[in-house]
Nucleic acid binder design. Structure first.
Length: 586
DNA sequence: TGGCCTTGTCATTAG
DNA sequence: GCCTAATGACAAGGC
C-alpha cells in the first residue's frame, strides 16, 4: 500500500481501483479509506483546522457578549440573583429617541474598526471570514438585496459611512445587537427619511419601560431589556433575534405606505382595535410624541387601580360587558374535580380576603372559574375589553406577562435554576397550564403585576412594589398566595433535585465502597498467600541452619530436641527443648 | 384500570 | 414574631 500512495501525486483510475480493492479487503481489519488516502487526510486536517478557527471565533463572540451583559449586572450576594447595575445615565435611550438628529455611531465598531473600510471591503471580508454562514437564516429578513445578510457579526461589518440610528452605546450586548440587526435589515434609508417615527427601538422601549416600572429601585433609570434580565437571558438571544427577524418581515408595509396608522398597526394592533380612545397614540397626528409618552405613562394610578378593584363595580360596567362579551382568552384552565364550597361568601364588599384555596374552590365550580369570577366580578372578565386595553396601554398584566413569559420558558430550559429535574414536554405543558391558572387568577383580580415578577422579585422590591400600589385584600391575598406557591414550587423542585443528587451520590459511594471492599479482599488474600510463602521459606531456612549445626562428635542436632532462639541483642542460641520444658516446669 | 412517575401544593419545622 | 427554605405527605394528571 505504501507503494501505491507514495510516489504518485495524481493516481490513475487503475490505481484508484486497486486502492478500492485493497481498501475493501482492509475493511475487515477496521481500517477506513481515509487511512490510505493522503489527500483525503490533508483535507480532513484542513477542515478540522478551519472548524477549530470558526469555533474559536464563535466562542470569542459569545464571551464578549456575556462579558458585556455581565458588566451590566451585579450579583446580589444575599439572594444570589443577578440584578441590573444602575447606570448613571438617565433615559439614555429616550434621549436618543427624542433627538434623532444626534445619530450616534456604534462605539464598538468605531473603536474596533478604526481603519475605515469600504462597504465592499467589509462584505468581502465577511464572505471570507464566514463562508459557511447560511443565507437561509438571514436572507428572508433582508428585504433589500443591497443590504448584507443579518448575522451576528453584522455590527462588526457595518460600514462606518452608515450611521446607526438611535444606537445607544450604553445598551447591553444582545439587545443592542438585536436592534442593530433590526435596523440593519430594515431599509435604513427609508427610515432615515421617516424621521417623524424613525425610532424602531420604540416598541422595545415601551416594554422595557413598563417592565422597569416593576422594579422600583430602578424605575428612574432607563435600562435595556438585557439589563433587566438575568444572565440566563443570554441564552434567549437567539429567540429574540428570531422575533426581530419576524418583525423585520413586516417591513414591506413600511416601505410601501408607512404612515402613523400603519406604524401603530404594526406595533400596537390591539390598542388600535380595542380602544376607542382619542388619547391613543395612533389617533393623533404627532405619533412620535405620543409614542414617546406611552412608555412613560405611569403604571396604574391608584385611581385606576381603585376603579379596577373588584369592590368597585358600577352598573354601567355591565353595558361594557355586553359590548365586550367574554372571549376565549386561550389560557388553559385545569378542571379540578373539587366542588365549590357553597358556604363561602364570595360576594360582599369586594375586599373579602380570598385566599388561594378560595380561588381553587371558586374555579373548580361547575361553571368553571371564569363563570364564577364573572359572577363575582362581571367587569373583570372582559379580557378583551377596554380595561384590558387600558392595562395594555399601561404596559401591565397580560401584554407584559407575555413579554416576560416568552423568554421565561426558554430561560427555564437554559438555566439550571428553573429547569425541573425531570422535565418532559407534556409535563412542561402541564406546569405551564398551572402557571397560567395563577395568571388567570391574577387577571381575574386585576393584579397589576406579572406572575413571574410576583414570584421572583426580591423581598424588599416585592414589598416596595406592593406598597406602591393600593391593592385590596383579595388582591393582596392572591399575590401572596402566588408568591408563596411559586417559591414553594421552586423549593420543591430544588428539594427533589437535591434528593436525587443525594441518592445518586449515595449510589456512587456505595459502588466505590464495594469496589474498595473487593480490592481489600484481594489484597488480603494476596497477603495471606505471601505470608504463607514466607513461613514456608522460614521453615526451610530453619531446617537448613539446623542441619549445619554439629555436636562434639560431629553429629547433627535433632530439631526435635533443640531449637534456635534469638535474644534481643541479635545473638542466636541453641536451646535444648527438653531442658527448656524442664526449666519452664520449674 | 391499576401502577408508576412527575409535579404542584399544603403543612410543618428549623434557621 | 415574621419570613424563607427545606421537606414529608398528598393529590392530580399523564403514560
Amino acid at each position: 500500500m505504501m507503494e501505491i500512495e507514495s510516489p504518485k501525486v495524481h493516481p490513475s483510475q487503475q490505481d484508484m481501483d486497486l486502492i478500492d480493492i485493497l481498501w475493501r479487503q482492509d475493511i475487515d481489519l477496521g481500517a477506513g479509506r481515509e487511512v490510505f488516502d493522503f489527500s483525503y487526510r490533508q483535507k480532513e486536517v484542513q477542515l478540522q483546522r478551519q472548524k477549530e478557527l470558526e469555533e474559536e471565533k464563535r466562542q470569542q463572540i459569545v464571551r464578549e457578549q456575556e462579558k458585556a451583559l455581565l458588566a451590566q449586572l451585579q450579583l446580589d450576594e444575599e439572594t444570589g440573583e443577578f440584578v441590573p447595575r444602575p447606570t448613571p445615565t438617565n433615559n439614555a435611550l429616550t434621549q436618543a429617541n427624542t433627538a434623532p438628529a444626534e445619530i450616534t455611531q456604534n462605539v464598538a465598531f468605531t473603536e474596533e474598526d478604526g481603519d475605515a473600510m469600504s462597504f465592499d471591503e467589509c462584505m468581502q471580508l465577511l464572505a471570507e471570514t464566514f463562508p459557511l454562514v447560511e443565507p437561509a437564516e438571514s436572507a428572508p429578513t433582508c428585504l433589500d438585496p443591497s443590504i448584507p445578510p443579518c448575522t451576528d457579526s453584522t455590527h462588526l461589518m457595518m460600514p462606518g459611512e452608515i450611521p446607526m440610528l438611535t444606537q445607544n452605546p450604553l445598551l447591553p450586548g444582545p439587545m443592542d445587537q438585536t436592534w442593530m440587526d433590526l435596523q440593519h435589515c430594515m431599509n435604513i434609508q427609508e427610515l432615515l427619511d421617516m424621521s417623524a417615527y424613525v425610532n424602531t427601538a420604540q416598541p422595545a422601549n415601551v416594554q422595557e419601560s413598563n417592565y422597569s416600572q416593576y422594579l422600583p429601585k430602578l424605575s428612574d433609570v432607563t435600562t435595556g431589556t438585557a439589563e433587566m434580565c438575568p444572565p440566563d437571558f443570554m441564552n434567549t438571544y437567539d429567540g429574540a433575534f428570531n422575533n426581530v427577524n419576524q418583525m423585520s418581515l413586516k417591513t414591506p408595509d413600511i416601505n410601501e405606505s408607512f404612515g402613523p396608522d400603519e406604524f401603530c398597526d404594526m406595533f400596537y394592533p390591539d390598542l388600535e382595535a380595542k380602544v376607542n380612545s382619542s388619547s391613543l397614540p395612533c389617533e393623533g397626528g404627532d405619533t412620535d410624541g405620543q409614542l414617546d409618552e406611552l412608555p412613560n405613562a405611569p403604571l396604574l394610578k391608584p385611581m385606576d387601580l381603585h376603579s379596577l378593584s373588584p369592590g368597585n363595580f358600577s352598573t354601567e360596567k355591565s353595558e361594557d360587558m355586553a359590548e365586550f362579551p367574554d372571549s376565549d382568552s386561550g389560557l388553559s384552565l385545569d378542571a379540578s374535580p373539587k366542588t365549590s364550597s357553597p358556604g363561602k361568601s364570595l360576594h360582599g364588599d369586594g375586599s373579602v380576603g380570598f385566599s388561594d384555596s378560595d380561588m381553587d374552590e371558586m374555579e373548580s365550580g361547575p361553571g368553571s372559574m371564569e363563570s364564577d369570577y364573572a359572577e363575582m366580578f362581571p367587569l373583570l372578565f372582559q379580557s378583551d375589553g377596554p380595561q384590558q386595553s387600558l392595562l395594555e396601554k399601561s404596559g401591565i398584566t397580560l401584554a407584559q406577562e407575555e413579554t416576560v413569559e416568552q423568554p421565561k420558558t426558554e430561560q427555564a430550559e437554559a438555566s439550571g435554576y428553573s429547569k425541573p429535574p425531570f422535565t418532559k414536554d407534556k409535563q412542561k405543558k402541564r406546569s405551564e397550564a398551572r402557571l397560567s391558572r395563577d395568571e388567570e387568577r391574577a387577571r381575574a383580580l386585576q393584579i397589576p403585576f406579572a406572575v413571574d415578577l410576583i414570584i421572583n422579585l426580591p423581598v424588599d422590591d416585592f414589598n416596595e412594589m406592593m406598597a406602591k400600589h393600593q391593592l385590596n385584600e383579595a388582591q393582596l391575598a392572591l399575590v401572596r398566595d402566588i408568591r408563596r406557591r411559586g417559591k414553594n414550587k421552586v423549593a420543591a423542585q430544588n428539594c427533589r433535585k437535591r434528593k436525587m443528587e443525594n441518592i445518586m451520590g449515595l449510589e456512587y459511594e456505595l459502588d466505590s465502597l464495594k469496589e474498595e471492599k473487593e480490592r481489600l479482599m484481594k489484597e488480603k488474600s494476596k497477603n495471606n498467600s505471601s505470608l504463607r510463602e514466607m513461613k514456608q521459606q522460614l521453615n526451610s531456612l530453619y531446617l537448613e541452619v539446623f542441619s549445619m549445626l554439629k555436636d562434639e562428635q560431629g553429629k547433627p542436632y535433632s530439631p526435635n530436641d533443640y531449637s534456635l532462639q534469638q535474644t534481643s541483642d541479635g545473638s542466636v542460641f541453641l536451646v535444648p527443648r527438653v531442658k527448656k520444658t524442664l526449666v519452664k516446669s520449674n
